[in-house]
Design a binder for these strands. Structure first.
Lengths: 146, 146
DNA sequence: AGATAATAGTTGAAAATGTAACTAACAAGG
DNA sequence: CCTTGTTAGTTACATTTTCAACTATTATCT
């Protein structure tokens, strides 16, 4: 360990990111959990459908970077709770087109509203410049491997 | 959603943070997994002991912000693999003081070395200023609730 | 001292996740 | 067509996490 004594977990980005992510998710999590009985995966799926329109599970898979089994289970549960409906595609019956129901759209709107506000709270003590840099760095980290 | 059409998941900090955290953890994860058969919880416990010296499970609990059951199980496994040893405290036999073994220290050193390098890779395309801001923002998010 | 509360840590069951194997539908080459 | 390969999605099983209950030990209050 020679001169490595100064290496702290707080200097280690993966750790910091995980901590920050957990902390930041906490407050929002309780909302979709308690109010709608959703898991994070379910909220993500609902969001993708609500935000980008009808699509198949595969498309969500690619966009959301979630494993297909997670999506499969999330869709099943969202369907049971009547937040999402599925309709087989005539042309290719392997797919099913997923749509948000009325109820789903209401939940989506509510959650988005809160998310928006919540996001604002999270960054409110940062300057505009800090916020911009933070978001930009995160975006790059989220896509590019080290 | 009226005028909320521009609200994207990519603008939502908890999502961005989670994505970035997952992505950033990926490369490092394989190291402690494949080379030492460790889980993330175990690596964290080992790190805390290696970096900050002997302490009880409770202390790790507070420092690392991990649930006590996670730590209990991590310690058990680390002990089985001879990375950590435990010694009852005379004064209060509810506690057990945890220490890193020779073998544990070697693993710790190796992982730290890699972590250090890995961290450098992650930030290498950011400017020094961006990096500083990123770390500072994350540190604050990691502690303060929104 | 004796009853009660608090603390450290463990254990067990339920929920969630990850991995791999599977089914069903389509595609393409012979 | 018919074999082989690919793709979308589901299911089964093992691992991990979470939550609640539990044990053992110490602290506190009267």
């Amino acid at each position: 360990m020679q001169d490595k004594g100064d290496f702290d977990l707080k200097d280690f980005l993966p750790y910091l990111l995980n901590l920050a992510a957990e902390e930041a998710s906490d407050g929002f999590q309780t909302l979709y959990k308690d109010r709608y009985g959703m898991l994070r995966t379910e909220w993500r799926v609902l969001f993708h459908l609500g935000r980008y329109g009808d699509m198949t599970a595969k498309e969500i898979c690619d966009r959301a970077r979630m494993h297909k089994t997670k999506i499969s289970r999330a869709v099943t549960k969202l369907e049971q709770r009547r937040f999402v409906s599925r309709k087989e595609v005539e042309a290719d019956r392997r797919h099913a087109m997923l749509s948000v129901t009325e109820q789903g759209r209401a939940a989506y709107a509510d959650l988005c509203e809160f998310a928006r506000h919540y996001d604002g709270q999270l960054v409110k003590e940062f300057t505009a410049k800090e916020e911009a840099i933070l978001r930009r760095c995160l975006s790059r980290l989220a896509v590019i491997k080290g």
